[in-house]
Design a protein around this nucleic acid. Structure first.
Lengths: 239, 239
DNA sequence: AAGTGGTCTAGACCACTTG
DNA sequence: AAGTGGTCTAGACCACTTC
């Protein structure tokens, strides 16, 4: 088993651009030159140039705005999915500016796939919330929260402007006891891409969470889609 | 904000192939027809065909063997990074067949970046282990374990054939108390690609772990590179 | 030896964003 | 209105795998 040198043109272009990023010649948030311009600079076709860009994108160094060009990624936000602190809290704590936007807040009946997870009957009432969350003026996260009505009756009559975590704690005295989390890389579809200002087909990070109360009864099911360049997932175990 | 229909040719090809996979017309582990064959079937060029394949790959549905073609992914192994059970144990528990291969087992001096993490002096002695791990005859994980000599003196004189977790527990009476874990999508380089039988530049999942003893002293630093299609990461919180 | 995937060229058209 | 990224064509050569 020998390792080949691997010296393709697109890798050399990739490395050259990566060095521009490392050296700070290209700043976070800054727009790249156009593809045609870069292709000319490196003396290659756009196809080859885009191979190099795709690799930088996969590494999280750059991202694309749909039909708007390529941009330099900024520092990721640290996120600990095991904590119950709210998005607003932990983003602020890192000196960044969070914003939350409600896309949807409805009372719905649970379809089969959800009923299985929440251990309720098909058709049971649940609250379905969809939010888009921002850091420093850029959308980074699509979050869906589905809560059983029994857990927080009349939720939609409450003011949803502030933190959901706080609302549950203060108005309902509700604190989650345990949760199961899984995650995996995913591909963002057209809608998700538009909401996160990414090209459809970009890769993302999907996180699924099932929360239980003190008795072990499932009370909330969450689904999160993150911009992969915007977050650094980490958590602590034991203690 | 309106959502476009997005009806490009490569997406239609992607969907057609995805249906072949879902329906079971293509079985796990099976090799795809050649790119030229598929391109002819769909009446497109190889460039377009490869766009569709790249998307299926990003979704984890298929993977490529370097210069050997495209293959159907098989069911992922569930992995809980917060548990201290060994690879051999949890893979076996899922009815799959694990195998571990040592790539390297050395006594080394800590370079600066590692000394910072392990809170030791630069040049302090550590044990550096590199292993490749398999499930059902396919390589799925590259694992690096770096342990301080103080934590397990004479480690390399022990039989490394069986589980490292067990060895530490039984021979040294060592159990890790806390650990900090971070992970992110990554791009596999040439060497990693070859070892995991993937094309260089494929995406992977990187996991970093810093383990501490009961006093909070760092004792082990791990780095894991997973085939993204081979693993389903998940863990439990609270309790 | 034949065929494969990996890489690359030199164009092209379109829908969309930007000025 | 001009320019951009997104998509696509129709070829090509090479190193490698497979037979």
């Amino acid at each position: 088993m020998t390792i080949k040198p691997a010296n393709s043109q697109y890798l050399r272009i990739h490395d050259a651009l990566a060095e521009d990023l490392d050296s700070g010649r290209l700043q976070a948030g800054e727009r790249f030159p156009t593809e045609r311009e870069l292709a000319e600079r490196f003396g290659c076709t756009r196809v080859t140039l885009r191979q190099a860009l795709a690799r930088l994108e996969a590494e999280g160094a750059i991202y694309r705005g749909h039909k708007r060009g390529w941009f330099v990624s900024s520092a990721p936000v640290a996120y600990d999915p095991s904590r119950v602190t709210s998005f607003m809290e932990y983003v602020t704590a890192q000196g960044r500016e969070p914003r939350t936007e409600y896309l949807l807040a409805e009372r719905r009946q649970a379809p089969a796939w959800l009923a299985v997870r929440l251990q309720v009957d098909v058709g049971a009432w649940v609250y379905h919330l969809e939010r888009r969350r921002w850091v420093d003026g850029r959308p980074v996260l699509l979050e869906t929260n589905i809560l059983t009505e029994q857990w927080c009756p009349g939720l939609l009559d409450q003011p949803l402007g502030s933190s959901l975590t706080q609302l549950l704690r203060q108005r309902y005295g509700r604190v989650q006891a345990r949760s199961e989390i899984t995650f995996k890389p995913c591909v963002l579809d057209e809608i998700q891409g538009q909401l996160l200002e990414l090209a459809a087909g970009s890769s993302g990070l999907m996180l699924e969470r099932l929360c239980r109360d003190a008795q072990g009864t499932p009370v909330e099911y969450d689904l999160e889609y993150w911009r992969p360049d915007a977050v650094k997932m980490g958590f602590e175990v034991g203690g």
